[in-house]
């Protein structure tokens, strides 16, 4: 604003914002503190205490080893990385075709986007029955396929925006020099949209990492992503909240890093490329 806001106004604005921020940060902070508390003596008490008497890392080591957290972390990593790579590569190819050749026109592009909006619970049932026939339930492939379907339309649309921002002349001059379409795509276009590729891959990674319904319905015990291991820690005769909090903290590392470092692209990513931000 050009009109100089008064000092009281500025104090008020910052005060409200900081209060709101504290409210929004509190759940994360509380989980962080809980992850270092002893589940029986320091969590299960009234009144609750803010800080643990002693910052123990045993919740982390127990959750990672005894509760299978490390394996779950590995499973999530394999599934999310594979999905991200597949979505980014095929998404880039599709986006290239849509942006440069206008393949299928606007309707085809929007059809691709509309598949992203399919309710997962509606597709979970047929996917479950199909993969049951194929004996592929409880494998990496079933989750990679399911997540790819949901992220490929998103990846295509996001990358389409990045390719459209790039002048076509560069590829055309390479074509004049005798470069094939595919080589021009690989050697000219892809390197020039590297930021777009990274952003797309990271978003596909996060969406897959956070995904729960498919992970729950399409796996049993051989493959267990981190989102399905967490619910298994509740129940029985005692719930070890310290360990749950520890595993929860580990599970939010990728998302938190993305929020902190990719802010510029988040509007674009979360609105499927609709709002450039």
């Amino acid at each position: 604003m050009n009109s100089k806001p008064s000092l009281t106004n500025r104090v008020l604005v910052h005060g409200v914002l900081l209060f709101a921020l504290a409210v929004f940060m509190f759940p994360v902070l509380w989980m962080f503190l809980t992850s270092f508390k002893d589940s029986n003596t320091e969590f299960n008490r009234f009144p609750p205490i803010l800080f643990p008497a002693e910052w123990k890392v045993s919740n982390y080591t127990d959750a990672l080893t005894d509760k299978g957290g490390l394996r779950a972390f590995g499973d999530s990593l394999v599934i999310a990385t594979s999905t991200a790579v597949i979505c980014t590569f095929f998404g880039a190819m599709t986006a290239y075709s849509l942006a440069r050749f206008r393949t299928g026109g606007q309707d085809f592009a929007f059809w691709i986007l509309s598949t992203r909006m399919f309710p997962p619970v509606a597709s979970a049932l047929p996917l479950f029955l199909i993969f049951r026939e194929l004996r592929l339930l409880d494998t990496y492939s079933v989750l990679i396929v399911a997540n790819t379907v949901f992220n490929l339309p998103f990846a295509t649309w996001l990358l389409k925006g990045f390719i459209e921002d790039l002048p076509a002349e560069l590829e055309e001059s390479a074509r004049v020099d005798g470069c094939s379409y595919f080589r021009a795509f690989l050697q000219i276009t892809l390197p020039l949209i590297t930021p777009g590729l990274v952003v797309t891959a990271l978003f596909s990674f996060i969406f897959t990492w956070n995904e729960f319904m498919f992970a729950l319905l399409l796996t049993r015990n051989k493959v267990q992503p981190i989102t399905t291991v967490l619910p298994t820690l509740v129940g029985g005769h005692e719930t070890l909240w310290g360990q749950i909090a520890a595993l929860g903290m580990i599970a939010i590392i990728p998302g938190t890093l993305l929020a902190l470092f990719l802010q510029r692209y988040i509007v674009r990513g979360l609105t499927l490329g609709a709002v450039k931000g």
């Binding site: 759940p27 994360v28 989980m31 956070n210 998302g255 993305l258 902190l260």
Partner: peptide, 29 residues
């Protein structure tokens, strides 16, 4: 500020569910 506000958006709903189970806990929340 914006980056900090955005952290909840990219957290797995499963984990945010647990965050609120801790906070809303009937006995010790």
């Amino acid at each position: 500020l914006v980056a900090l506000f955005l952290i909840p958006v990219l957290i797995a709903p499963v984990v945010s569910g647990y965050m609120f189970r801790l906070i809303l806990h009937a006995d010790v929340g």
